[in-house]
Amino acid sequence: MNSYAWHSIRAGSALQCGVALPSPDHESRQDNVLPSDLRQALGRTFVLVRAYNEGPVIGDVVADLCKVFPNVMVVNDGSSDNTATVLRGLPVAVITHLVNLGGGAAMQTGLTYALKRGAEYILTFDADGQHRIEDALALLREILTGKWEVVYGSRFLGEAAVDMPRTRRLILKFAVWFSNLTSKATLTDAHNGLRVFSRKAASVINISQSGMAYASEITSQLVEHGMTIHEIPVQIIYTEYSLRKGQSSSNAMNILIDLLLGRFLK
């Protein structure tokens, strides 16, 4: 019996998670598609979705995730739109910040929650629909090899990202360079939302940057604690919506300032 079954019963939703509440459809599909070790790992994996005013898209994104992953949790970061209403109909755990704190704080809340619930793997997935579920499964497959504690998705490895604007590419490249400089890691993509952490890795993360500067902070902490990080290529789907919702380019400066000054807080 899966821990979220209760949610779906209470919600009375027509949507059911494949593994938690097996419907013939999902069962047969997963038997065909997923190897048994991966299928087993799904039950021990928590998918963390952070949402701040993602009402128009969060329903579809989470529903798609639920078809594959039995444990999906959404940190609703003080959304003022209909995000909470949309989530109510879905078989997911919803953790609600009463006020908006920012991506880093939401991440930490999700990690803390998942660890408390006994998650063995925690997979982060952006709410705006820019990630593909097959990429999430590829990440999980990679961490199951046991060679790494953390696996990041990278949009700069392998195939080119779909419709990535040039300014976005430049800023992301700069972010990678800066992040590598400060965290002593060599990554190709520092701000990719698609990541999977082992329990051990998630336990060492302690995010102090509430805003978006947390991405580099996490990597620094992982490296500090000797966690092995691996990257595999993933594709990002740049839609008009995800670009509008994503980090504005001018925000890069704020992140930089937070990171530099944040060093004085330790």
């Binding site: 019996m1 821990s3 949610h7 755990a93 953790i95 609600t96 910040h97 009463l98 930490q108 006994g118």
Partner: peptide, 18 residues
């Protein structure tokens, strides 16, 4: 805010049955 969120989530979900 995190503690409040986690406490509320714990109240709303059943005890550990992982």
């Amino acid at each position: 805010v995190r503690q409040l969120a986690l406490d509320t989530a714990a109240r709303e979900s059943p005890p550990e049955r992982h």
